[in-house]
Amino acid sequence: MVTPSLVLFYLAGVLTLGGALGVVMSRNIVYASLGLIVALLGVAGVFLLAFAEFLALVQVFIYGGAIVIVIVFALMLTRLEDFRGLSDHKQWPLAALAAMAIFGVLAAAIARTAVSTQERAEVGFTVLGERLFTDWAVPFEVVSLVLLVALIGAVVMVRPTGDRN
């Protein structure tokens, strides 16, 4: 039976896959980054259909908003000619193999997971926040430590060395 949510699911899937194919197939690096934003928004759509509204918004906010924009920002500072022939690099079979391996692991993991027969239910973000900051406080802090390390690394990398000349 075709329900609206099924149609939307396929729509999100087409967006995700289409965007992802655009990322790897496009010969124009800017088109590739625009494909990336489409793919990431498609994933947000899948989250939304799984009633994970908070995750969907985080996906749009962090990936769609921050990460892709920083990527595009960096691309705008470069010349397009520097990236000619990026998508037909001679290592592509290796990359394809690695991608297939990751896909295999994920697919196997998903196939082995027992499908819950429970009714899908919304988890309010208040509940999510409570769990995150009580039961999962330590992993949360560890993740923020990673960000701190990245920040310090960035500062170290741009720190001027030696004299002005």
Binding site: I37, E53, F54, G65, I69, G124, F125
Partner: peptide, 17 residues
């Protein structure tokens, strides 16, 4: 929306693109 404010922020960020 339950998370209206967060939605407003998340969507408005996209306009930079």
């Amino acid at each position: 929306l339950d998370m209206g404010l967060f939605y407003v922020i998340a969507v408005s960020v996209l306009s930079v693109m």
